[in-house]
């Protein structure tokens, strides 16, 4: 078998690569390890819980409405630390650059990284640069890794029947912004990526109430994240279509392209499961934050398995983990 693009699409096919790593002898350093496939690892050091995570970024185009590869590479790692309940402290940065890459462009990318780091008061403490010969790589790839400290660890498998499901804002913005600018689709309203560092907002929410489970719906979108949470928590989740916040511009684009907004990436959103009693309080805190204005309670957790969408028309459908590439199914 050869690696296909589907193997990196965050859907079911990617599982084949992930399975390879189950061969690694040691995957756990005493806390939460690779086997959990959570947003990051947790390593107990003394009486502190250190959160450690890494992410590589290859987004095309490098600059898109609302962000660029630099901002994503910082936010992706900060958010993964935040999703574990950690406060991000420091990041590393590994650059792999194609020979001939424009220096000014690189400088813009670094500026953007700096702004994102400053927003959350995170340092970039170490780095590495490699240049590959022309043609060996398409422009640039950025890897970041990061550490943080967690007082309360939040997993992605802690949902309990009765919990409310909250999303911190509109879904699908990043995916549609990037595909529109990459494929040069000229939608009536420009769609802007939501890429943002979320640790501040997440910690405000954690201070306002209990969070049972949390995940950022990046690759594979909300559909992938919510299914992973349901599966790992061994619960059923019911989502109310009418409550799911989706921008009208994203909806219009999805109806022109046949792409489900729930199946494309978000880079500045969090999905959380919270006790029903805390839901309104947490929602209020989220809504008060600049990155959570459109937050909404969109569903509930029940006994059972699977994720069910209660449609606006009164029907039901499953929200399924995307394969990575849509396949028509109508007969």
């Amino acid at each position: 078998m050869k690696i296909s693009l589907m193997h990196g699409a965050g859907g079911e096919v990617m599982g084949e690569v992930v399975d390879l790593f189950s061969k690694i002898t040691n995957t756990n350093a005493g806390g939460i390890g690779l086997e959990a496939l959570d947003d990051g690892a947790v390593i107990p050091i003394g009486d502190r819980q250190v959160v450690f995570t890494t992410d590589s970024h290859v987004v095309r185009p490098l600059f898109f409405p609302g962000g660029d590869i630099g901002r994503i590479s910082v936010c992706g790692t900060i958010n993964d630390i935040a999703m574990m309940g950690g406060r991000p402290l420091a990041l590393s940065c590994g650059l792999i650059i194609e020979e001939g890459f424009d220096f000014d462009t690189l400088s813009k990318i670094v500026d953007s990284m700096d702004r994102a780091l400053s927003e959350e008061n995170v340092s970039l403490v170490t780095g590495d640069t490699k240049v590959m010969e022309k043609g060996a790589l398409d422009q640039i790839a950025i890897n970041t890794a990061g550490i943080g400290v967690a007082e309360t660890i939040v997993r992605d498998n802690g949902l309990i029947p009765g919990d409310a499901i909250i999303v911190s804002g509109t879904l699908g913005d990043h995916g549609f912004a990037v595909l529109a600018s990459r494929e040069e689709f000229d939608f009536a309203d420009q769609i802007i990526s939501d890429v943002a560092p979320l640790s501040g907002m997440v910690h405000a929410a954690m201070n306002a109430g209990t969070i049972h489970a949390m995940k950022d719906p990046t690759r594979g979108g909300f559909a992938s994240a919510i299914n992973e949470m349901a599966k790992k928590s061994k619960v059923m989740i019911r989502i109310s279509e009418e409550e799911v916040p989706i921008r009208s511009s994203v909806r219009a684009a999805s109806q022109l392209l046949g792409i489900d907004p729930l199946e494309v990436a978000n880079e500045g959103k969090v999905v959380m499961g919270v006790p029903a009693d805390d839901a309104e309080t947490i929602l209020k805190v989220l809504k008060g934050h600049r990155y959570g204005k459109d937050a909404a309670i969109i569903g509930t957790v029940q006994e059972g398995t699977g994720v069910i969408m209660e449609t606006a028309a009164g029907g039901e459908r499953f929200i399924e983990t995307p394969m990575g590439d849509p396949v028509p199914r109508v007969c």
Binding site: E184, P326, P328
Partner: peptide, 20 residues
């Protein structure tokens, strides 16, 4: 016209376009 131009682009780029 705008929707049509997106459809045209979708077809010419074969973006989310199945073959049947």
């Amino acid at each position: 016209e705008q929707d049509l131009s997106i459809l045209e682009k979708q077809v010419s780029k074969r973006f989310n376009t199945a073959v049947t």
